[in-house]
Write a protein that binds this DNA or RNA. Structure first.
Lengths: 247, 247
DNA sequence: TTGACTTATATGTCTAGACATATAATCGTG
DNA sequence: CACGATTATATGTCTAGACATATAAGTCAA
């Protein structure tokens, strides 16, 4: 018998912990194709023997790989390399101010229009409001190094976010304000391409009929809609980048 | 002292396991805003007492929440609700055939052009090839209910995927073939908007100058490029939808 | 006041077991 | 051979500890 300390890894010089090493070993074998989809990974007790550790340690490594959908675990049958099903890419849509400053460019913001009103039927439809209520409608523009970057057309539901009534959207972009005042939301983005209409072309300083990338974002929180926003980007200069891993 | 069986949850009628219950409890408090960003979550030993369980059980729940970036754990300081940093959305870019059939529409495929050649310098630049080699260049079209859905312009690096030389791309779309023959790749997508040129307009049966959504996808596997593909979608009818949670 | 040292503490990892449970495989029976 | 009952087994969850480690907080001297 050995005491815990006998096996407890001494964390020597930058060496990762044992379960992380196991996880990386297996992940590498999968990603290089050495263990192709469908391949059965050694049983937990075999990995225990190979790495000279307890089952919980092996289990922790395998659990994390299962959470990441790299492997599938079936009782009695064993653990198998998954066949990647869907190409899911992670699209990072940052706060526009953060996005621009991250590029090392200077961020500019202009409020074009901001009005508070009782929701019209069009507003209610856009926000999915079932009852009457107040909203804030905002039009604004973001620029990078004084070049128009995107125009924004937003509606905020004041019955969900009453504090928004006191925010100063002339000073702070509504996206940033919401990000810091309404935590942990869910959202749906729809991306499409359109031609710049008269109004958009003027705001973005591009030609009428130039291509624009449009992002529609609906944000909600515990089944209550927070905001609906439509962003127009100049389609020839702006790009959305999504990276992904796994199939 | 109690034996393991005393505490071991009896898995009664559909009740989730204890660590999952702990995880859900905490997640709910965060998502509803009861515990706002920056709030310190009870220490592990407090949660042990509250749920009458061992530290490992609490730890498993907290570890999973930390992996999902909902909380941040700091030694000696405690565990805190994270302030969501970036709006990361999961964009599911399915195999086009799967996407269309999932919509309940009939999938159609036409190979426009397929040729095998020694990589030109343009090919090498597009694929990031450092040495000479053979490639396959493919142009094809996907349609839904006989309406053009997307046109595809693809390059496959035969030195990475030699089996592709024997595939029949007149019968099977190259995307599907690659998905089933080259597991566990990584990729980067770039999304932009352009105007349809003459060639694209004809293939998609839309007007020249109509807006198009363009997806450029580079796929690689263990530092070797597999394929580069550019997809044009009619911008006014096609939409990319990305859902996300947390921020 | 500031900087260096010490201490307390919460998390990080690990062990050697235990019982629970789903299910693949086997066995029996008609 | 078909089908239901039994068994074996791999994973799922949990325990009651242990030592490791980073670091916030407190202590003390210059």
């Amino acid at each position: 018998m050995s005491l815990a300390s006998d096996r407890a890894r001494p964390a020597a010089a930058g060496k990762p912990t044992l379960y992380k090493r196991i996880r990386l070993d297996i992940e590498t074998r999968i990603l290089t194709g050495e263990w192709p989809p469908g391949h059965r990974i050694p049983f937990e007790h075999q990995l225990m023997a190979r790495y000279r550790c307890s089952r919980m340690t092996v289990n922790k490594a395998l659990s994390e790989l299962a959470q990441a959908d790299l492997i599938e675990r079936r009782r009695r049958a064993g653990t198998f390399v998954r066949r990647p099903q869907h190409l899911s890419a992670v699209l990072k849509i940052a706060d526009i101010r953060a996005e621009i400053t991250a590029l090392g460019r200077s961020y500019g913001y202009q409020l074009i229009d901001c009005r508070r009103r009782t929701a019209t039927s069009a507003d209610r439809a856009r926000l999915g409001m079932s009852t009457a209520g107040k909203v804030i409608a905002i039009a604004c523009r973001h620029s990078a190094d004084d070049v128009p970057f995107a125009v924004e057309d937003r509606l905020i539901d004041l019955s969900t976010v009453p504090e928004a009534a006191t925010a100063d959207f002339a000073r702070e972009p509504p996206g940033s304000w919401l990000l810091h005042h309404v935590p942990w939301t869910e959202a749906e983005h729809t991306i499409s391409a359109v031609l710049a209409d008269d109004h958009t072309a003027k705001a973005l300083d591009i030609a009428v009929g130039a291509p624009c990338l449009v992002i529609d974002r609906y944000t909600w929180r515990s089944a209550r809609t927070v905001t609906a926003v439509r962003l127009h980007y100049p389609g020839e200069t702006h790009r959305l980048v999504a990276r992904f891993k796994g199939g």
